[in-house]
């Protein structure tokens, strides 16, 4: 959708009427789109769910690690009682087979773990990537060469294999912390490349040269003149890497090297539900749907943000 050439990421040209800066224009353009509203609503829903997890599960009456033997049938291999995996007024999304743990509580707490890891990893990636990209692009020369080689090297790592290996070798560490660090470790070159390219195109614009002539130091130029110029693409790119992070977290947990039970996470729930896909398909469907919807919503939001904030770059 390159038909909307809103020059939001470039510094506001003089022709724009007063009172409608680039950010206002971008916001108006975003508000026009239905996909944005829907995906924003879904993202907000899951964020609220994650943030209010303890509150929500106490409202529903079950904690995520509480067993309910009365909700499963001991004679049928622990299959949940009632239709659709035991969905009832008591258990809103049904229960886990065998243990009878409440799925609503587990999904909500799983959202907390999954989103916490994904968003923190994204923050690390974006901060590191922006810092590296802006440095490489602005200072050029040997700094650029070293940083660019480092980016190439990081991108040549078989990242998923390496992540799995690191997660499984390190035994007695905080799993959530380790996972965030490991996932964040391999994402920064992507951001850095985008920022570096943008910085290269900005660093000899007239207003930057003017600031340099006016006696601004590199730190001031970088933060005051360059950073606002790269902010648009960075925001768009950030939203687009969140779904990848969520998917990676889920994949690692799915493979059993993520967070350890009994802490719930979506990927881990899906992995456990695979054994029951024949007898209790709802157990598989519920966490999968949550994962799918979150990833989809972030992707749609990122697409729209990129169309508006970074109209020159193509779709990925």
């Amino acid at each position: 959708m390159t038909t909307t050439p809103t020059p939001a990421s470039s510094p506001a040209p003089a022709a724009v009427p007063a009172g409608s800066g680039p950010w206002q224009l971008a916001r108006a353009e975003l508000r026009r789109r239905t996909a944005v509203k829907v995906s924003l609503a879904v993202v907000a829903l899951f964020l609220l769910m994650a943030a209010g997890a303890p509150l929500l599960s106490s409202l529903a009456g079950w904690s995520p690690e509480e067993f309910d033997k009365t909700a499963v049938d001991p004679y049928l291999g622990g299959r949940p009682l009632g239709p659709l995996g035991g969905i009832s007024a008591d258990h809103w999304l049904g229960v886990e087979p065998v243990t009878g743990r409440d799925l609503f509580a587990r999904v909500v707490h799983g959202a907390q773990v999954s989103l916490l890891i994904a968003l923190t990893a994204t923050a690390i990636v974006v901060l590191a990537g922006t810092a590296a990209g802006i440095t490489a692009g602005y200072f050029g020369g040997r700094t650029d060469a070293v940083l660019s080689r480092l980016m190439d090297l990081t991108m040549s790592f078989p990242s998923l294999i390496f992540m799995i290996a690191m997660m499984s070798v390190a035994k007695d560490v905080n799993r959530i912390l380790l996972m965030t660090a490991v996932i964040g470790l391999f994402g920064w070159p992507g951001v850095a490349r985008v920022v570096r390219g943008q910085t290269l195109s900005l660093r000899h614009r007239e207003y930057v040269d003017a600031a340099r002539v006016g006696g601004s130091g590199p730190w001031r130029i970088l933060t005051r003149d360059i950073l606002p110029g790269v902010a648009g693409p960075v925001i768009a790119y950030t939203t687009l890497i969140v779904p990848g992070m969520i998917a990676t977290e889920a994949a690692l947990s799915y493979l059993g090297v993520g967070v350890r039970p009994p802490t719930p996470s979506w990927g881990q729930m899906i992995a456990e539900s695979v054994a029951f896909y024949d007898t209790d398909p709802m157990y598989f469907v519920i966490p999968s749907t949550c994962l799918f919807l979150t990833v989809l919503a972030f992707t749609l939001l990122g697409d729209a943000l990129r169309d508006v904030l970074d109209p020159r770059s193509g779709r990925t």
Binding site: A250, A271, L291, F292, T299
Partner: peptide
């Protein structure tokens, strides 16, 4: 395409196993 890109590979796999094999 957006929807398909949001499906994790294990989800697609399970659906295929369930639909086409089982």
């Amino acid at each position: 395409a957006v929807a398909a890109a949001s499906l994790p590979v294990y989800f697609t796999s399970m659906m295929l196993i369930y639909g086409l094999i089982r």
